[in-house]
Write a protein that binds this DNA or RNA. Structure first.
Lengths: 183, 183
DNA sequence: CGCATTCTATATTGGCTCGATATATGACGA
DNA sequence: TCGTCATATATCGAGCCAATATAGAATGCG
């Protein structure tokens, strides 16, 4: 599922400009999928070429033209076809976990700071998702995905709160007084 | 934290060839970070150019030469410096959730199949991580990250088991008998 | 009032990364 | 013998992100 397909999916719900699609990614999808202008605009151009969406230019007063994209029947079919294919594996890239992996090279203070920052960030995202969960205008899929995100983030917070002492302590053990670093 | 930096990190633990680094990514890191040959080999070349690792070619009988990389003191410093910088946000790309988002375009049967597949996959990954958790040779960081992964995956399984009926039922409501699709 | 920031809106570029593919050989089982 | 898997390196096209450019309006702040 590339950005192109996902744009098509968002357009099954309502017409939108590239800018609005980017906003849709940021509010509510960004916790499990994101996309940048650098992929959205070319995607919309290609979808237009392929006849899966149409583009209506709305000249605005004192603003750049707004290009409003609308899905075509062919586009709707193509998207439903894409949904039917088995989804690929999740791809996760977590700088936080990659850093924690090398906790033995960090000071306990650094590790504590890292985890504090992560907890703050995660709780903030959690609060945001809980707000979104209240919005009753959301589609059923949206609400399920939001609830999924909340469940996962809650597990992360609980894990960090309960287990952080394990990794914070480990950093001390790896640096017994007087011991030289390997190599 | 790019692949280049992560390769450097793995080399702080032991010397390795590109192939072995790829294996390290696949066993134990792949659930939160992955890398392909297409990024590992160029990364190692660049690290060598920059003097952060050295490369020793081991000509093998009847095999391609094995290029064994070893980190330099400068490389170790550069990596520890990189660890000190605040980590970027997690980037997640989940085809599964992207598909679920549009559950109202799928049949209940499709949704059930999707969730069954996801549960099977997640339980399998969970079993793998639980095996890895038993390995006592792992570094403290490894064990923490594995435990983190287990906590998250358990939450996902629980959520899907308890809430799948919500989304499976929603697909029916969106398709009341005789109702025409919007548009 | 002036200045900076933010928002709307589109677009491009460099560089990173993935997935597929190519090459070469050994081992193992059917 | 034939296919497949493992070892081992490497490249290429395509996809994608972060940064940047452009440009006017609105908003905030002192």
């Amino acid at each position: 599922m590339d950005v192109r397909t996902l744009c098509l999916g968002l357009l099954t719900r309502s017409e939108a400009s590239g800018y609005e699609i980017k906003k849709a990614f940021q509010s509510g999808l960004s916790h499990f999928y994101d996309a940048s202008f650098g992929s959205i605009y070319p995607a919309l151009s290609r979808l237009t070429e392929e006849g899966l969406v149409t583009c209506k230019e709305e000249p605005q007063d004192k603003r750049p033209d707004k290009k409003v994209y609308r899905i075509t029947p062919a586009g709707r079919l193509a998207f439903i076809d894409a949904l039917g294919r088995p989804p690929g594996h999740d791809r996760i890239r977590s700088d936080f976990l990659a850093t924690i992996l090398f906790a033995d090279l960090l000071s306990p203070r650094q590790i504590a700071g890292l985890i504090d920052g992560r907890l703050t960030e995660t709780r903030s995202l959690l609060a945001e998702l809980r707000e979104q969960a209240k919005e009753e205008t959301r589609a059923a899929g949206d609400r399920f995905v939001i609830a999924y995100g909340i469940a996962v983030l809650e597990a992360e917070v609980t894990f960090l709160e309960e287990r952080r002492h394990v990794i914070e302590g480990a950093a001390l053990l790896g640096r017994a007084p007087g011991s030289a670093a390997a190599d």
